[in-house]
Design a protein around this nucleic acid. Structure first.
Length: 991
RNA sequence: GCCGGAGUGGCGAAAUGGUAUACGCAAUCGACUCAAAAUCGAUCGUCGCAAGACAUGAGAGUUCAAGUCUCUCCUCCGGCACCA
């Protein structure tokens, strides 16, 4: 072995980066050449190259995907780990304006700088697949998708008022706002009516919502052999619970055998009333078997997962089953409910006999899998995403189910529609409010005596709302002088304009009652009569509600008093009956509304993809033919926004005006001058990496099917309701087109926790607290920085940078470096090979297991700490074998690729460490033969003994009681209980 | 207000219901050194001389055993929000 030289990270890192690039070590194989290698697609949210370059926080996500991709490659996968740049849009344009250069030039420079910064981190991207959203070869396909959206009626021109940022001088989508302000510049947005292109994202709202919760496992088969479907019999849907009861002491499962039909099943019960599945399952176990001492562990599946028919009293039942897992605590039993006894035999069967084949319950297979692997407890979701991001999307889509009422306006031909999600107390409605900016308002109040006054007041309300930044305001309004005749028999209701009514939610008109906080406050202020139909059970409170002293809104627990059909019922429990009642009596129809708005897709700015349509002199919109794509963004001198609502492109006559020949006549067609928003290119880029150079297709179907979804997608949580919504929308659209074969683009999503500055604030030029990765890499090396960023804390958690703390990572690498002096040379090994002591050998295998699993689950901090523990142990040895050293550096290779490659070569290995097979562990070596067992007396640790793992329970209990300190505590006392947890602990209970 | 997540040493943090504080940083002591840095060895939750007692936001419960499970509450972070 060569003598210890000092660890020169600069030389090592430069050398290997050059070598990898030359040898194309990280080349992704095309599907045809990949052979039997399984694929793995790991993706970063590609950066937006700003002028400032990267700070140390940016690469955290890139390092993580790099670690995962390197391990996957070593495990024999064909890895796709690409990188590219998203560079259209406002920030690049504004930077270019500031630098007095063309955005295309500025972007080129910034991209080059970013690439260099990424390269010195030693990331394993296959740069031959780089994409850039501003490249015409790329945005040709962004435009192509737009044409398809147009073709399918999902892109349309609209003249509705939209969000307008007066600073950025462009229209914005709802997603581009933050608290009513422009997300980029913080200016409060105005509502401005103007022509714009809009994408019908709401068409996909339900599908996007459903797939957030969808599970990808196959529905259990129908059990029609046991319970044949009866022709002609009605189909009845039922919610049921299945109780799976396990006795951990004897390792047996509880089943019941129906003597008559000779069925074996787990306990099944129908869910009654407001019972939870857990309560049902527990009750049924008690009633059918008498066992009462069972402990709820987990629900093994969500409701409606298992569907099957059963024949039951002349019904074809479809049961929607929830499986509940219990463990038996004691044999305590009560007498079995009458009628249950005698029919069934109660049996405890061995684990090995608890198999789907022997049971009626065909879902069992899935449940057993989930009992064994708690991670699967809730099913395998279609989207393995953080709960918080799913929740943010649910909130953003904001689906709300309710009823739509239509009512005529008195002395008028106008009919108004109102939407209500809390319609249970519909008998309480006493007035109606309309939004001040409602399009119907002017028509409604036409001819009123104080028409002008009303309009002025409404305008004042609109202005106030905008000025207050859409925050909470005092209720304000004015009577329109009009009445509507209530369809549900509440008589003539006055119509008011109210500042809390929103024109763009529901229908913009609301029926109001005493059972809504805002309505209540409004009515009190303007002395509009109120009527109470919903009362709490609490008598005292009910009196106050009756006297209109408090507003009562609890639709869940409140008791209805009207209409008489539902008198005395809890509002919530009769909600579905009320729906039927309203529909059957022709009073209202079902309606679902969304908070999500259609995507405002045009920007009045220069730096974006041109929208590929023509406008003809007679006002038609004609799509640019596919073969003319891309519509290239022209290079111009002046690209500053005009602010007139027109894009700067409109001024380029040469580009805008296109001579056409129509029926032999010459016509001038005008190009669309609005451009696409920044989010367009990033909504599908992950597909282009699969087949980046294809000139015929967006992506070749065969190649798309090979790479399928991204297996792992890593990026910031701030994209939850922007990029991640848009990309899912486009992907589903492409799925409908047949361009992609999957319903969702990103199977597993992991969000990166932000790295804050040492002062706890966000890293920003403004605060002067930015740490530049170039400096860190020069001083400590890329490997140290990579290890540190992965070791700092849990990956998805925000954390403050601490340069001092980083020396720990540097020391770790140096100690690995120095360890090479202890490695046996080949010559030495021939004479006498060193073997690790048993405890170190066990630790080695445990570490391989832990590091492998932790990288897979992105627990990088614990993976590194496991390696540190192993190193601490191995350093105690005089000499170690080459094999052991090789394993250690292989485990570290994904984290610190340069130094491990150097050590790999220096210790005489061939090829690149990054292409060597990933170490595997031996299950037999995960446990050492001798174990230390701690001894508790009455729940307190009193001592420990060392014994053989294979020793009998009796021997260990004997030894435990004999331990000096333990015997002191149990001396002269009566032992009531002795528990032995194999290989871990003994618990003795004394009186 | 609704929804989601989290609260453990001086700090970053670890812990399939089974020895709480692994691993790292800082700190203290020691070795090496003329000295310092680096490195190596040791100590390091609180109280206590010790035996031991008390400690995972607070309080209760289940259990032989709770940071972990159940209930109530507090605080912080994030999403949505006059959304009917």
């Amino acid at each position: 072995m060569k003598k210890n030289t000092s660890y020169d990270h600069i030389a090592i890192e430069k050398k290997w980066q050059k070598e990898w690039s030359k040898k194309k070590t990280y080349k992704t194989l095309d599907p045809k050449k990949a052979g039997k290698k399984p694929k793995y697609y790991v993706l970063d949210m590609f950066p937006y190259p700003s002028g400032e370059g990267l700070h140390v926080g940016h690469p955290k996500g890139y390092i993580a995907t790099d670690v995962v991709s390197r391990m996957k490659r070593m495990q024999g996968h064909n890895v796709l780990h690409p990188m590219g740049f998203d560079a259209f849009g406002l920030p690049a344009e504004q930077y270019a304006i500031k630098m007095k250069t063309n955005p295309a030039v500025a972007v080129g420079k910034n991209v080059a700088r970013y690439k260099k910064q990424l390269e010195i981190l030693g990331l394993d991207y296959d740069w031959s697949r780089e994409v850039n959203t501003t490249d015409p070869k790329y945005y040709k396909w962004t435009q192509w998708i737009f044409l398809k959206l147009l073709e399918r009626g999902l892109a349309y021109e609209s003249y509705e008022p939209i969000n307008w940022c007066p600073t950025c001088k462009t229209g914005l989508a709802n997603e581009d706002l933050e608290d009513g302000k422009c997300e980029r510049c913080g200016t409060p947005v105005e509502k401005k009516p103007m022509r714009q292109w809009v994408l019908k994202i709401t068409e996909y709202a339900d599908r996007m919502l459903e797939d957030l919760d969808a599970t990808d496992y196959v529905m259990p088969k129908l059990i029609d052999k046991v319970n044949p479907h009866q022709k002609g019999a009605p189909i009845v849907k039922r919610q049921v619970a299945h109780a799976i009861v396990f006795d951990p002491q004897h390792k047996k499962y509880l089943i019941i055998r129906n003597k008559k039909f000779n069925w074996d099943t787990v306990v099944i019960g129908g869910i009654e009333g407001n019972e939870s599945p857990v309560e049902t399952a527990q009750r049924e176990v008690r009633e059918e078997t008498g066992y009462v001492d069972i402990e709820f562990k987990r629900i093994l599946g969500g409701q409606t997962e298992a569907q099957y028919y059963t024949k039951h009293k002349g019904e074809n039942r479809i049961a929607y089953a929830t499986a509940v897992y219990f463990e038996l605590k004691s044999d305590k039993r009560v007498s079995i409910a009458e009628g249950e006894d005698g029919q069934n035999e109660i049996l405890w069967i061995d684990e090995k006999d608890f198999v789907p084949g022997k049971m009626v319950n065909s879902e069992l297979e899935i449940w057993l899998e989930r009992i064994k692997d708690p991670a699967k407890g809730w099913g395998t979701p279609l989207l393995n995403w953080p709960q918080s991001i799913k929740e943010a999307q649910r909130n953003w889509i904001g689906r709300s189910e309710g009823m739509l009422f239509t009512s005529p306006v008195k002395d008028s031909d106008i009919k108004i529609k109102t939407f209500s999600a809390h319609f249970e107390a519909f008998k309480a409605d006493t007035f109606v409010v309309i939004a001040p900016d409602h399009p119907l308002l002017k028509e409604l109040i036409k001819g009123a005596k104080n028409e002008n006054e009303i309009i002025q007041f409404a305008e004042q309300l609109i202005a106030e709302r905008s000025a207050s930044g859409y925050e909470y305001r005092e209720p304000k309004g004015i009577f329109t002088g009009k009445y509507t005749i209530d369809p549900v028999g509440n008589g003539e209701l006055p119509i008011w304009i109210a500042n809390y009514a929103l024109a763009d939610y529901g229908t913009g008109i609301v029926k109001c009652s005493a059972h809504d906080e805002r309505d209540f406050a409004f009515a009190k202020k303007y002395q509009i009569p109120l009527k109470v139909v919903l009362l709490p059970e609490d008598k005292e409170l009910a009196e106050k509600v009756k006297k209109l002293e408090v507003c009562y809104v609890d639709m869940k627990n409140g008791i209805l008093h009207e209409p008489k059909e539902f008198h005395g019922k809890k509002a919530h429990s009769v909600r579905s009956e009320i729906i039927s009642y309203l529909i059957d009596n022709n009073l209202a129809e079902k309606k679902t509304t969304y908070r999500l708005k259609d995507w405002v897709f045009s920007r009045q700015r220069y730096w974006g993809e041109p929208i590929p349509v023509y406008h003809t002199p007679d006002g038609r919109v004609v799509p640019v033919p596919e073969k003319e794509l891309p519509v290239v963004l022209p290079m111009v001198k002046s690209y500053e926004p005009t602010g007139t609502g027109e894009s700067p492109l409109a001024a380029i006559e040469k580009w805008v005006n296109v001579p056409m020949k129509v029926n032999g006549k010459k016509e001038i067609w005008k190009r669309e001058t609005n451009t696409m928003p920044q989010w367009a290119g990033s909504s599908w880029y992950y597909l282009r990496y699969m087949d980046p150079k294809n000139t015929k297709k967006l992506v070749d179907p065969k190649i798309e099917q090979y790479w399928n979804q991204t297996d792992l997608y890593v990026g910031g949580a701030e994209h939850a309701t922007r990029h991640l919504i848009y990309a899912r929308f486009w992907h589903k659209f492409l799925y409908d087109l047949g361009v992609v074969s999957t319903k969702e683009p990103f199977m597993k999503l992991q969000s990166v926790g932000l790295i804050m500055a040492e002062d706890g604030r966000k890293m920003s030029k403004r605060w002067g607290n930015v740490v530049n990765p170039d400096d860190i890499i020069a001083t400590y090396g890329a490997d140290t920085m990579r290890v540190y960023e992965m070791f700092m804390g849990p990956f998805n958690q925000a954390i403050a940078w601490n340069t001092q703390s980083m020396v720990g990572s540097r020391r770790f690498i140096e100690r690995i470096w120095n360890l090479q002096n202890k490695v046996q040379s080949t010559a030495e090994a021939k004479k006498h090979s060193v073997v690790l002591p048993e405890d170190a050998e066990t630790l080695l295998h445990q570490t391989i297991k832990k590091v492998t699993e932790d990288i897979e689950s992105m627990g990088f901090n614990t993976a590194i700490s496991a390696m540190m523990i192993l190193l601490n142990r191995i350093e105690k040895e005089e000499k170690i074998s080459r094999e052991v050293f090789a394993i250690l550096i292989q485990l570290l290779a994904p984290f610190a690729p340069h130094v491990t490659e150097e050590l790999w070569k220096a210790s005489g290995n061939k090829g690149s460490i990054h292409l060597a097979p990933w170490p595997t562990f031996d299950t037999k070596k995960l446990q050492s033969e001798t174990v230390t067992i701690s001894i508790q007396v009455n729940g307190k640790i009193r001592g420990s003994i060392t014994c053989n793992r294979t020793d009998s329970k009796e021997a260990i209990l004997q030894a435990a009681k004999g331990e000096a300190n333990v015997s002191k505590w149990i001396e002269g006392k009566h032992i009531t209980k002795e528990i032995y947890v194999p290989g871990k602990l003994v618990s003795i209970v004394v009186d």
